[in-house]
Amino acid sequence: MRLLLHPGHAKCGSTSIQRAIIRNRPGLADNQVVVPDPHLRLPGEAGFHPRGETPREFFRQIMENGGDTTSLRARLESWRESLLWRDATFVISAENLINHLMGPIGEGIHRVLAEHFDDVEVVYYIRRQDDYLLSAWQQWGFKEGKTFAEYSQEALRRANPHYLAVGQAFGRLYGAASVTVRPLQAEALRGGELLTDFFSHLVEDPSTLSFDRDRSNLSLNPFFCEILAGYKGLFRDIHDDRLKQRLARTLGVGHELFQRERDFMDPEMARRIMAHHREENLHLQQQFFPHVPFEAVFGDREEEELDPGERVRMSRQRAEQLQKHVIRELLELLQSMPETAKTPA
């Protein structure tokens, strides 16, 4: 049996890959590529969910149960006994498979996976750290009441994200030759694109599959996130997406509240983040993708240099503009609602 393991990293294209895996489950099965359901059941098994998500929840429960892998072993043993999928490639994608990786719980899960497959390929995608930190802050950090500057300084103190350590840990668990690390940079990806790169590990011609390349993990506008950071009480926890979902339903995902803002990050902040990780990135590039020029992945961006005071002024102006637009549209929405709907119960 062969396993293609995609263990995350979060904010590195995982949602796009998982959506495409689920969308193409039947076509992949025709090519003897099996995508198990959330409970690690296979097509043809009783209870198999053909539209089920990837098995993040299955692995989360193992981790919360102290690393008891009994259920995982039972599932993998049933895979080995399956006559239908004996020569198949199995695909497991779950971001939480990098959790506890340096400790006994994570290592125990991966030891079980390694011992049940004849061949394992680990495909691990990363993105430059300034991009990653901005995206992670837009997903989680602002809900803790942290500005982007505060969030990134804390991340630098913790040396987060730990790409090199994760890549090397997988090398120890599955063998260095089994680990592929790909930066989310066109120069490093087959076909210059994430989904083409990923599925080329599974099928000869990825163009035969169906891909939805719309934005898969919508983020709020970073200027709006800065505003919301001052209202920590709005969120139950960092995973609370109710506000984002309501705004998307009400205003539409094309609204400027979901707009990417190229000029949000101060170039000096980006340089500081990348300089902090430079030594690690050099080792990462040399060990895992020496064919890709270092500067193409981790080099300085070409940005228009502005006086720091001018950049602050422009940022405040953009934030104020966004606030005015949002307030106006919400007022217009209230005005358009029926009177009964506007009156408190």
Rank of each mutant, 00 (worst) to 15 (best):
I273L: 02
A275V: 04
I109K: 06
R301I: 07
F264T: 00
L134D: 05
L156F: 07
G106M: 14
R60H: 12
M63L: 15
M337H: 15
W137M: 09
L72Y: 05
K324Q: 09
L194G: 05
T250R: 15
N217S: 02
P38H: 13
M337A: 13
L234T: 05
R41F: 15
Y174A: 07
A296T: 03
E304Y: 08
R301A: 09
D118K: 10
R316N: 15
S93R: 13
R242I: 07
L220Q: 05
Q18H: 06
P104C: 09
L134F: 10
L72N: 00
R272H: 03
S16A: 04
R51L: 09
Q285Y: 06
E261F: 06
D214R: 10
M1D: 00
F223G: 05
P161S: 08
G66K: 13
E332H: 12
C12Q: 01
Q138N: 12
A345F: 14
A149E: 12
S78R: 11
Q287F: 09
R249M: 11
L84Q: 09
R157T: 10
L243G: 02
K11G: 03
P50V: 09
F199T: 00
H162Q: 15
L243N: 02
T196D: 03
L134W: 11
A248Y: 10
A275T: 07
M269F: 15
H239Y: 13
R262M: 10
R158G: 01
R80Q: 06
P43S: 11
H162M: 12
G254W: 14
E226V: 05
I62E: 03
T343N: 10
M314A: 15
R2D: 02
H116I: 01
F211A: 00
P50N: 01
K143T: 02
A188R: 02
R60M: 10
C12N: 10
E115W: 03
L202M: 05
P344C: 06
R301W: 15
I21Y: 12
W79K: 03
A94H: 14
F59Y: 10
F223W: 10
Y151S: 15
R51V: 09
L5Y: 07
V123Q: 01
D240N: 08
L330N: 05
R311I: 12
G145A: 06
D266N: 12
L334Q: 12
S71M: 15
I126M: 15
F148R: 04
